[in-house]
Design a protein around this nucleic acid. Structure first.
Lengths: 178, 178
DNA sequence: AGGTGATTATATCGCCGCGATACATCGATG
DNA sequence: CATCGATGTATCGCGGCGATATAATCACCT
């Protein structure tokens, strides 16, 4: 997930850690933390896996005056990995956190996979919606007032998201036709 | 968080792990996973900390035919701990995951603390809302279409939640007056 | 000239929670 | 009587977070 996001960003241009984190925070800060405590370990993991490499120091030397920053760039294997993650977009792609990240990289996602992700997400939200409906129906009176409020609000929220997803999907389809 | 939830549940009655998890799943399954992979380690942690104790086997012996289940009950220190967690309800209480859990135990939460939590949560959601507004305003055209959709939907969703919280707070106040 | 605080920058640590998995028993259904 | 789903306890590895350390640079105020 973090891995996916980093590979996606590095697709645009080589960057150093701080900048990657900043871009992610800009892009998805409202939905995810993307803390340094994950960033640097993940970078090292990607590096060890050969998906990214540290750029030679020559280029950073150009913009000197700045200091000690490590610029990473994508390797061919890294690009491949990103494509693989998209191609195998599975169930864990639909959940709250992951979905937002994937949306943020939709512009470099093939149309068919965009569709798969949107529909998977919809199914997932619909399931949550059904769960909430059942709970609200079943319990009736004996449930705590506050908990019921929470479920009511959750239900409304999921209903809205399903509608939103339907719009996105419809838009995708209309684009596919043209 | 998990700790808070378990202590809260055991406040009602002594229970064994499976039942605790089931109740939590019932109560908050739509918002949180509460997997076994956290449950049992957390129970052991609470036990080591002296917040819960394993009930003597005599009582479980009564309902025998069943098997090998460990019933935990709250110690005085456990009750104290729960009260402390409520009293010190701080910033990390306002975030998405935690708030839902706290709501679920509002019936055993003092009115003033309920208020603190609701208002803290509101401030937190308002901040996210402002962040989303800025992003939507600032970027204007250059932002990815999908990302903008995501932020639009997020903004709408936070606006609704603020309204909902206002209602809850108003209700609390009217109850306090009577 | 000097101090102070925010920003840029990298990195580690411990903790929490999840998903997967293993194992064993019980009840109901066929 | 076999098989499947629910009951029940437990562990493992991993990903991500918050807190924290360190340090240089920059902008601003005095």
């Amino acid at each position: 997930m973090f891995e996916f996001a980093l590979l996606g960003l590095l697709h645009e241009a080589p960057m150093h850690g701080y900048e990657l984190r900043k871009r992610l925070h800009d892009l998805l800060g409202a939905f995810r933390a993307f803390s340094y405590g994950s960033l640097y370990p993940t970078l090292r993991r990607l590096q060890r896996a050969g998906l990214i490499v540290e750029e030679g120091p020559e280029e950073s030397a150009l913009s000197w005056g700045r200091r000690a920053r490590k610029v990473y760039k994508l390797t061919p294997e890294g690009k491949e990995r990103f494509a693989d993650l998209l191609a195998n977009a599975g169930p864990q792609t639909w959940d709250d956190d992951s979905f937002g990240v994937h949306l943020a990289f939709f512009s470099r996602t093939p149309a068919e996979i965009r569709m798969r992700i949107l529909e998977g997400r919809r199914r997932c939200v619909e399931e949550r919606r059904e769960g909430l409906r059942e709970r609200l129906a079943k319990t009736g009176e004996q449930i705590d007032r506050y908990t019921r409020e929470l479920h009511r609000q959750g239900l409304e929220s999921t209903e809205r998201e399903v509608r939103w997803l339907n719009e996105l999907i419809a838009h995708e389809q209309s684009e596919q036709d043209e």
